[in-house]
């Protein structure tokens, strides 16, 4: 609970929903022990089925939140409710300081990957009814926490950019000779799954090798490189250039086929398969028979 909300003037009516169903150690301290029972009563006041979520809280700029803790919220359940819906409800109704990223709410923008009940999942794509309660919602592991569920994604983006995630050609023809670059249907199918990445970072966060080796490109970046390396419209030379990036010490060979990334990817990209295929490409490129 933030300080503003505990102040009496921010409570419009005695029936202020801000206190309903929310429990947090800090709020208890601020309001004195007497509030505890009242909290429980108010949680019970919520009509119908509720879901119990435990949300990771941390804010280096607010006293009392510098030490990470979990806040409990009881959110009224609705059919079709996602994990993202539940934290949005908690933020809108109980504690406006609860911070997390989200935008599209339809698994397109990739901003709301959280660590939910011990697994990297997209908040907006995870039905809360599929999870065991209380639902534990934490920021992505192996990335530094900026505030509450918001993690620092800079390193992830750096790795993505290392593989030059854009279409390249040996040289651009003169303007008059420019023509549509067609891709065969088969080739489109080949790179279809790899093109679905939404840069959510769930895979990187789940990878135990990436956690131990900060320079490892990681599954998302390798998959991004796969998308272009396998695209027939890019020339041979460009493909070689891509493989040179991938076969470096902290490239594809770091992967130990734990399948963690493939398990968590919300877009069902067969990441391990793509990494393994690039390993074989790298071997083929370097094999010489004298």
């Amino acid at each position: 609970m933030s300080t503003q909300q505990a102040e009496p003037e921010s409570q419009e009516a005695p029936e202020d929903p801000a206190m309903k169903g929310a429990e947090s150690p800090a709020a208890d301290e601020q309001n004195g022990g007497g509030m505890v029972d009242e909290h429980a009563e108010k949680a019970a006041e919520l009509e119908g089925e509720t879901v119990h979520i435990k949300v990771f809280r941390y804010d280096p700029e607010v006293e009392g939140k510098q030490e990470p803790r979990f806040d409990d919220f009881h959110v009224p359940f609705e059919k079709g409710m996602t994990v993202l819906d539940s934290v949005m409800y908690a933020r809108d109704e109980y504690d406006s300081s609860l911070t997390f990223r989200h935008s599209c709410r339809q698994a397109v923008c990739g901003s709301d990957a959280f660590f939910v009940n011990g697994k990297q999942r997209l908040g907006c794509k995870t039905q809360i009814s599929d999870l065991e309660q209380p639902v534990r919602i934490e920021p992505l592991p192996h990335q530094e926490v900026v505030k509450d569920l918001v993690v620092d994604m800079d390193h992830f983006y750096d790795q993505m950019h290392t593989v030059e995630p854009y279409f390249q050609d040996e040289d651009t023809p003169p303007v008059d000779d420019l023509e549509e670059q067609r891709q065969s249907q088969e080739n489109r199918e080949k790179i279809k799954m790899s093109s679905r990445c939404i840069w959510c970072g769930a895979c990187m966060s789940s990878c135990n090798i990436a956690a131990g080796d900060n320079e490892y490109l990681g599954p998302a970046a390798i998959n991004k490189a796969y998308k272009f390396a396998m695209d027939d419209r890019e020339g041979e030379e460009i493909k070689e250039h891509r493989l040179r990036i991938l076969e470096q010490e902290h490239g594809v060979w770091r992967c130990q086929t734990q399948f963690s990334c493939t398990e968590v990817c919300p877009k069902d990209i067969p990441l391990t398969e793509h990494i393994q295929e690039l390993k074989r490409e790298a071997v083929k490129k370097n094999l010489k028979f004298w």
């Binding site: 280096p60 700029e61 934490e138 192996h142 530094e144 789940s206 734990q258 399948f259 963690s260 391990t272």
Partner: peptide
Amino acid sequence: MSQSYNRGLIEDFGRWKEFSAGMW
């Protein structure tokens, strides 16, 4: 980033119940 919080290795052996087949 002025300040941030490093939680270290979250998926340590304390969370072994959550490991998947490939990890085992």
